[in-house]
Structure formats: C-alpha cells, structure tokens
Design a protein around this nucleic acid. Structure first.
Lengths: 196, 196, 196, 196
DNA sequence: CATGAATGAGCCTTCATTCAT
DNA sequence: GATGAATGAAGGCTCATTCAT
C-alpha cells in the first residue's frame, strides 16, 4: 500500500526537520535522524537518496508554500484595496512562518553554503521572488502607491527586513503574535522608522 | 621576530578568507587554504589552533570592525544633528562592507549553523548590537525622532534589512555605490516604501 | 503445480543470465534481476537461496552442457575416424557457445574470483576436463595420432586457445560462423601456425 | 624527500598485489591491504585515490611490461632469423610471467568485469596487441613463414593459448620451467598438436 | 619555524537478505 | 506464492589534526 509508504516518508521528513533545525545541516548525521524515530539507516535510504535529498525536500516544499502564500495584487475594480491585499499577503507569510518555526530556521538561517546545487536552487527562488516583487513595486510606482526611486535597494531592504523579522520572531528574540508582526511591517513600509 | 610571524599569520588569514567566501566553511579544507599560498599543513597549525579558530578570527575581526564603525549618537549641543550622525554611521558600515565583500558573504551568509561555539558568539554579538540599537531607538523615541511603538520588530526589520542590502550589494544583485545605498536606507528609514 | 514453479524459476534464471552477462556478477544486484521481469525481491528468494546460488546454477548448467557435448573418442571398428570424431566434438562445443553467448561471457570471462566456493567448483570442472583430455591425448599419442611430448603444456595451450576463440567469437572480435571456427581450430591442431 | 614517498608507494603496491592475487579484487578490502603492512587506512588514501586506482596501477604496469617485452620482428639483413626472434619474444614474455605470478593471476584471471573503466582499458590493450600481432602475422604470411588463412581465429587461439599456458604455469597446474614452456609453444606453433 | 607523512575517528552509502502481511 | 518494507553488516572515503624530522 502506498499509504503506508507515504506515512513513513512523512515521518522521516518530520524527524529530519527537527534535527536540522536543532543542529544544522552539517552537524546532522543520518544516524541522528533515524535514531529519533527508531528505524534503521537502511530504511532511511529506502525513502530518500541521501542526506541532501531530504534537506532539499524540506527547503523546497517550504519555498513552494511560501510562493503559494503570496498572491499578486489584484487591481480590478471591486477588489480589495492594494493596501489590504498587501496586508493579507504579509499575514499569510507570517502565519506560515509561525506555524513552522523549524523551517524558518532551516531555510533562512542555515540553508546557504550547504551545497552548490542547493545554493543554486535557493538563488533561483530568491531571484524569482525578486522579479515578481520588482514588477509589483513598479506597478505601485506607476499608480503612485509606492514612492519613486531605485527599486533594487528597496527590494533588498524589504526582503531582508522580512527575513530578519521572521527569524527573530521564530527564535523568540521578538514577541510572536502574527497580527502585531504584520502591523509592525505595515508601519515600517508606510512610514519608515523615523518620526515625521 | 614577531614581525615575520605576524605577516605569516595575516597571509594565512587572507588565504582563508578567500576560500571561505568562495566555498563556504564546510566545503573548505585546510588543504585548500595552505595550497593557495604554498605552505604546508603543519605550518597552518603553527599559527592557528584549528579550522574553526581561523574562521572565528575572521568573523570576529569583522564584527569588531563593524562595532567600531558604529558610533553612538552624540546629543550634546554643538554636535551634528542626529540625522547626520545616523547617516555617517550608515556610510561607515556600508563602506566597510563594500571594502571587504568576502567578509560580508562569510559573516552574514554562511556563518550560522557552522559550529555551536561560533553560533553562540554570533548571537552574543547580535545581542549586543540589538541592545545598543534598542537604547538608541529609545532615546530617539523620547526625543520624538523615532516614531513610537514596539521597538523589537523595528529592530529586527531594520537589522535584517541592512543585512539583506549588504549581502545583495556585495553579490552584485544591487548596484554598489556607497552613497546611493546610504541614501536608499535613509529614505526607507524616513518614509518607508509606500507613497504618502 | 510444479509446472508453474518451474516456469518461474526459468524466467528468473533467464533474467539473471542477461544481467550477469551485461554487468558482471559483482555489479549485478538482485534488484536488477527482479526489476527486469517485474517481480518482487521476495519472490526471487522463494526460488533461489541467494545471489550466488543463481549464478552457480547458470555456470554449472553451462558446464554440464559443455561436458555433455564432449563425447569420448570411440576407437572400435566401424566408428568414424578419430579426426572426424574430434571435429564433431569441436562442432558441438562451438555451436553450444554460439547459441548462448551470454553464458560464454559469464562462464569464461567473469566467473573467476567471484566467490571462493565457485572458484573451487570451476577448478574442479577444469580439472576433470583436463584429466579427460589428458587421457584422450595419451591414447592419441600411443596410436601415433598425437605428436609425442609433455601433454601438460599442450593441454593448457589447447584449452586456453579454445577459450580465447570462443570469447572472441562471442564478443564479435572474430567472425562467428561455426564451421569456419571449427575449421580454424582443426588447422591449428593439425599444423600449428607457422608454415612448413 | 621523494625517496621516502616512493618507497611507501611501492610498499603499498606490493601489499595490494599479494592480497589481490589471493582474494581477488572484489573480496579485497582496503583494510586487508593496510593491515598487511601495518599502516592506517588514511595513509593508503594519501598514496592512491581509491581501491580501483591501485588495482589499475598494478594491471597497467604489468601490461606495460608485457608490451615492452614484445619486440617487433626485424627483417633486415643480418638480423637473427624470424623464428629466433619469435622464440626470444616468447622467452621474455614467459619469464616476465614466471617472475611475477601474482600479476598473471590478477591480470589474466580476475581483472575482467571488475570495473567498466578498467574493462575498457584492458580491451584497448588487447586490441592493440591484436593489431600488432595481426600485422606481424600478415608479414609472415607474405613471406611464407605463416600459413595462409583467416588471421582472426588464428590470433584468438594463439593469444588465448598463451594466456592459458601462463595461467596454468603460474598456478602450478603445469611444470614451470621457462625454456620448456617456450619449447612447448614453439612446437604448437610449428606443428600443432596432431601427428603428421 | 617549516615540513608533510601518518593517523583514525566518523560519516555516508549500498545491498543481500529476512519476514510480517 | 507474492510482496516490499525493513534491516544492519560492511566497506569506502574524507579530512582535521599530530608529530617526528
């Protein structure tokens, strides 16, 4: 039955997620993973090609979820205001992150530099995200919703800021209520940090 | 003579920096480092305790330089305006980063998850930076220079944003002129991203 | 029914033969074999004890066929001439080989060094063959049909030569018409290689 | 000093040769080799890339020695007769083999089927040898020194016969005096096996 | 100080084989 | 009889680190 197999696959994946989040990719051994759920090393290799394979499976599925939770701004009449749509996007992303803190740690903090192949995939993902955001910002500028200026640095700061916030929220450095976080980001986007 | 010894140490350090930036800590072998400057493995260990030692030396000296380049806002009469001092601080940090791109990559992109001891040190550094910035922001809020609100998320976003900008600047994703970058950050801090 | 079981056994045997010939014993996995006929690994072990078991089954049955195709020279009056009988023997051996090229590769090229037990069996087989041939040659010498001299080297050369010819014929290095091959061997046996 | 290094390399090579000859490539572990000369596994890998590397080093050097010991027939006036040169060639090959029985076993008996890359190299070697021998035979035929006929099977038989003789000589199945072996081969080449 | 040969712990990975369903 | 998930022994290989010269 493929049901059984799927359950096992997910069980191994869950175990790997916890260990990776705790010890990082490098320090994690396949033994750490299989020990946690009391299966043999051989079984692990029946389900995943190797250590990198399962790491990629985790990161990529999180990236996919992230991609799914970002919905392009709908400018057609009758749609919610762009501001509301932006806020909804942020809410989805923040909740995704808070619901899966381990994956935030893994994907945003420790995934780079692990493997050339994975680095490449992550770069491609970030590249796509940047392009998408860039187009969105451009439209926003044309509509007067986004202030004019070179979008490159804006994007780097905004994406980096979001990343930093999620990492800190998940690590406990910052209080972790989704709505407050969204509110904080919205304030930052609307008026920056400095008074006046 | 200690002069000779110092030169050697720096030579090895420079080689290590390049390799770490290129291949990441994990993939870098001591052999990669010593081969690059044509010394023996034994010599390496005459100057550094182990692989982690030299990595820490790099990261810590960069962190120290970073710390040095951030000067507390001087509120005494006759000092430049806080805005000018903030801008000068940003300028110093950005220039430090652009002058040493390899170290940006190493410190901000690949240092986490490498070793529990190093992770701890990095956390402490970030913690100090946060505390310092928090105090600065608090003063700013009291003076009405920083908008009111929970400083935790503000800090996470600001630091993360800065990190993201430097990484992208150094990797070539974003145009790398120091003044433009500073200008972009100032705009973000002053008015966020959105119009009005 | 034992009929069904026999068909399965032969089906597995045939699959194993092809894979062994292609990849060699070592590189062949049980999985390679069962995949080819779309049965499960468990089924394989219902029919053969282990990987070596099926390899031995193949090699031994080929050796048995080889043994069967060699018929002792009949010296009784009325029998065909010894030369004709020799030629007939060669013909049978050559045709056996050409009809089952995979087994030639397996048995003559890659079977040695695989397993101590199998090596032993192969040695015993070659030993029997040598003894039988030795007796035949001895009779031939007494009758003046075989030139005198130490039969040891003669046998090694003759058997090795035959082996080499079959391997090359089967691998395509040499043109593969049974009668021509037999003819070539007869010429070699009758007059060697050199003129006069 | 490269002297030391060279000695070590040869020491490891010698150990590997013995183990390979005894147990075959597959059954030999790197541990078997290093244990025999009481060095660590790591040391082994300081001198050879991997298990296959050292095996190839052995086989290829033996093949090279073999190639060196075969000298083209010199037909210029004043040279020894072709028959004498042939005999001298055989003598060199036989002595090479008898001086290094382990390598005969390794190269001729167990090298095929070990690794696709090595198989390829061996095939190329045999191919070259065949071509060279073919040209020699062709010249011989033109001079009337070799009987006419398809050279393909002749070569397969002659090379296979030689191989068989050397293997048997080395394994003790046949008495191992170089001159007698050469004599036996010469007889076979000159008059085959059968009387008259 | 410099060298580089030697070490060996430790990890990943494969695959023949078993056994509960 | 058939299945295929699970096992675990076994071995290849890497590389940071040591140390005698």
């Amino acid at each position: 039955m493929s049901d059984r197999r799927d359950r096992r696959r997910r069980q191994i994946l869950a175990a790997a997620k916890e260990v990776f989040a705790q010890k990082g990719y490098v320090a994690t051994t396949v033994d750490d993973i299989v020990t946690r759920i009391e299966i043999s090393r051989g079984t692990f290799y029946n389900y995943y090609d190797d250590k990198l394979d399962i790491f990629e499976a985790l990161v990529e599925s999180f990236m996919a979820a992230l991609a799914t939770s970002i919905i392009p701004i709908d400018l057609s009449p009758g749609a919610p205001t762009p501001r509301e749509q932006l806020q909804a996007n942020l809410k989805r992303v923040v909740e995704l992150a808070l619901n899966d803190p381990a994956m935030v740690t893994i994907s945003l903090s420790t995934a780079m530099g692990v493997d050339p192949g994975l680095d490449e995939k992550l770069s491609v993902f970030y590249g796509h995200l940047r392009v998408f955001m860039d187009e969105t910002l451009q439209t926003g500028q044309q509509l007067g919703l986004v202030r004019p200026g070179d979008r490159g640095p804006m994007l780097s700061i905004a994406l980096g800021g979001m990343e930093g916030l999620l990492i800190d929220a998940v690590s406990g450095s910052v209080d972790a209520d989704a709505d407050e976080l969204v509110e904080a980001v919205m304030s930052f986007l609307e008026s920056g940090l400095l008074g006046r």
